[in-house]
Structure formats: structure tokens, C-alpha cells
Design a protein around this nucleic acid. Structure first.
Lengths: 219, 219
DNA sequence: CCAATTTCTGATTACAAAATCAGAAAAGCT
DNA sequence: AGCTTTTCTGATTTTGTAATCAGAAATTGG
């Protein structure tokens, strides 16, 4: 009895289902939903194409199931952000951005999928909002709002700040193929420099005078 | 004798071809190449589906032809950047970012397509690099390098700076559907605030002390 | 106004990919 | 070992869409 929400123990079936999910996540994030074929996933996962329909009802279910593999990652992120809830809002934001960068390097699929579906709209975006990202993003916007109220962050719309910070952070990661084509450079090579750039220059650019002084004291 | 490189005068045919190109650009940018169907374009352009194959050899040709509609825009941008070539590099960068924002609002299709194809890689990305964006982006990276050499910009890799600035600038524009889903807010509403945010906070964040002083003098 | 040319349509073909199904192989259980 | 259930495959059907073609309508030029 396959394609159900939750999965049985470590049976043979779950092993291949996991392999399929991993391949699917990879392909969906690189190519987008439509460019990916069930046959292509099947081949990469070394199973026949009907095996996919055995484990997952259809292509949409497979997509969602693959996304759910990232839910643990996001939940852990949310947990770590909440753990800093007593710190000043600006510190929380910095923590959140560090986590965001970490996740973006470790799971580049996530940022690409958000970009793909966030531009197109539709039911997959709604699903992502409801089951994966909405809560976290609204939480971050609230923190940004607090940081503004505290006088540490420039008073721009918190939602715009959050999304701008995030898109800046994943920009060169998502656009790795473009970086190679246009500049012939490998992004992953200087990850440390990149992360410092995002934290210092981009996040730093949103700080007020007061926020900048606070930063120097804290570090 | 249709689907050739350059188009005749203002015949009946060119009018519908232009209409098709406009619809195609719109749909390609919102949905990506694969999600768009020839029938869908035909319907939106109020012609039969074979009419598309009369004017454009195939779907790929239609895509390229639609993109070429943006070439004039980019060329004008390059011209205006070169016009400022005698100004200090930092000023050139600010000019370039202002232009970039202007274009991104006026032709949101461009940023979305760069995001889509820049993530996926492949021959469409190569085409974009060769015919539309490569020269401009490498020029911008060179300017950023000069600004660093002049001590006005923080010394991060110029390519990363340029792409990060651009992705930050188009972030909330590209992700308008996400902004609506997650935050229920309309991005276009506060365009002026957004642009100020990008220029002051994001570009501002990359300035050195010296660059920041230079900014205050210039304005 | 008539002929030539351009522009476009309806009908059809070709094809790729998702989905289904009957049954084979493998795994688990007693 | 022998039976049952799970897991998977080969073959097939169905569907959606790009591409083709023959000919109709519209447009243009003499």
C-alpha cells in the first residue's frame, strides 16, 4: 500500500522512495516542474518509470513529497531562530541570515524552487507558502519590523527588506550557471567571501548609525 | 516569405507578428519556456495556432524573436552607461543601477527570464549572454573593479557584487506573486520607496567610508 | 477590378510524456 | 519450504502539444 502521506519503517520500498525523492528534488530545482520528466527521474534513480507511480500517485504528489524532505531543514531553522528570541531583534536577524546562507549552500534546491514558483504563482507557490515557508518569512518580517522600531534598521517595508535580503543572499548561488557562462567563475569556490559580503555589505547596508554601533559592540 | 531575421515594413503581417511577440514575451517570462504552449500564445494573440508557425519557424525561434524585442532597451542602457564613462566609477555604478531599476519596472519580463534561464543553464542562457546581456554585465563588473581600485567600494569580487546588486534589485519585482501570497502586499504600489531602498541600503552597503563621503558630496 | 502575393485557418500528423494495468520478481512471514 | 504481501517491470493507453499541409481569405500592386 504505497503513496501515502507518511512512510513505513525502513523497508525496501522506503529506500527506493527516498532515492526517487532525492533525484526528484534535484531535478525539479534545476529545471522546474515542467522540464522534468518522470522517465528522466526514473532513469537517474535506476528504476522503471511505473515504479514512480507505484510510490507516488502522480507527478504533483512526487513534487510535494520531495519538498517535504526540506521541511525538517526549515523547522530546524525556525527552532534556532526562536532560540534567539530573547536577543535584540538585530541579533536575531543576523542569526537568521547566517542560517539562511548555511541552508542555501547545503540545499541549493530550496532557493531555486522558491525563485521558480515565486515568480510563476499558482498552486505550488500556495503549497510552499502554507507548508514550508510562509510562517518563517512572516516571522522574519516581524523581526525586521522590531529592529526598525528599535532604531537599528532603516525604516523600509519589512517584507521588502526580508525578501531583498534573501534574494541577494541566494543570487549568485541560484545563478551559478550564469556566473559561469558570463564570467567563467565558480561561485562555490569563494563561499566564505560571499557570505561575508552578504552579512557585511548587504545586511550592513540596512543598518542605521545606531545599528552599526551596536554591531561593533556585539562582535 | 515569413520567419526571416529582419522584418518588412508595416504590413499586415508585421502587425500580428509584433502582437505575437509581445504575448510570447509576457508568457515566457511568467511561466518559463516549457510551461508556455503555442496554442496558449495563439489564443492570447487572437490568431490560430498555425499562424505562429507561419511567422516563426518554431517555438525556439519565437522565443529568440521575442527576446530581441528587448535588445533595443539594453542597447540604450549601454549607451547611457557609456555616456557617463568620464565620471568616477562609483557614479557610473549609481547611474547603472538607476537604469537597471527603471528597466526592471518597465520590462519585468527581462529579469524573470534571466532568473529562469540563469538558473537552468543551457543554450538559451548562452544565447542571452551572447546577444543580450553578456557585454553589459562584464562592463558593469569592470566598472565595479575600478570603483574598488579607487577605494570607493568594498573589495569583494566584482562579478559577485554586480550580480548580487542586480538580484537584490529585481528580487521583490520578480517575486511579486510570492509577495502577494505570503504578505498580501502589492509591490508595484511603493515603487519609489523600493528604488530608494535599493540605491541607499543595498548599493550603499557596498560603499567604503571614502565612498560614503563621496556620495554626500555629489548629491 | 483582376491577378499575384501574402497572410492565415481547419484538419491532420507526429511525437513525447504521463498514467494505467496485468502480471513477474522479490521480500517477508509462519 | 510454501504462502502472502510488497515491490517493481514491460507493454500499452491516453493526453497534450509542436509541427505540417493543403487550401481559404485577405491584402497588395498593376
Amino acid at each position: 500500500m504505497p503513496h501515502d502521506g507518511e512512510w513505513a519503517a525502513t523497508t525496501k520500498g522506503e529506500a527506493t522512495a527516498a532515492r526517487i525523492r532525492a533525484v526528484a528534488l534535484d531535478q525539479f530545482s534545476q529545471l522546474g516542474f515542467e522540464r522534468v520528466t518522470m522517465a528522466g527521474i526514473a532513469k537517474a534513480a535506476r528504476v522503471s518509470q511505473p515504479a514512480l507511480h507505484y510510490h507516488f500517485e502522480d507527478k504533483a504528489h512526487l513534487w510535494r513529497s520531495a519538498m517535504l524532505g526540506l521541511r525538517a531543514v526549515i523547522q530546524e531553522e525556525e527552532r534556532l531562530i526562536e532560540a534567539a528570541a530573547d536577543a535584540p531583534p538585530l541579533t536575531q536577524l543576523r542569526v537568521a541570515m547566517r542560517l539562511f546562507l548555511q541552508i542555501s549552500w547545503k540545499h541549493p534546491a530550496l532557493g531555486r524552487i522558491v525563485a521558480l514558483e515565486g515568480m510563476a504563482g499558482g498552486e505550488r507557490l500556495e503549497w510552499l507558502d502554507r507548508h514550508l515557508l510562509g510562517a518563517r518569512n512572516r516571522r522574519l518580517a516581524a523581526i525586521a519590523g522590531e529592529a526598525i522600531a528599535a532604531g537599528d534598521l532603516l525604516p523600509y517595508p519589512p517584507e521588502q527588506i526580508v525578501v531583498t535580503l534573501q534574494t541577494a543572499a541566494v543570487g549568485v548561488i541560484n545563478l551559478a550557471p550564469l556566473m559561469r557562462t558570463t564570467f567563467d567563475c565558480d561561485v562555490a569556490a569563494d563561499r566564505a567571501i560571499h557570505d561575508e559580503m552578504i552579512l557585511e555589505a548587504v545586511l550592513g547596508g540596512f543598518l542605521t548609525e545606531k545599528g552599526r554601533r551596536a554591531r561593533e559592540e556585539t562582535q
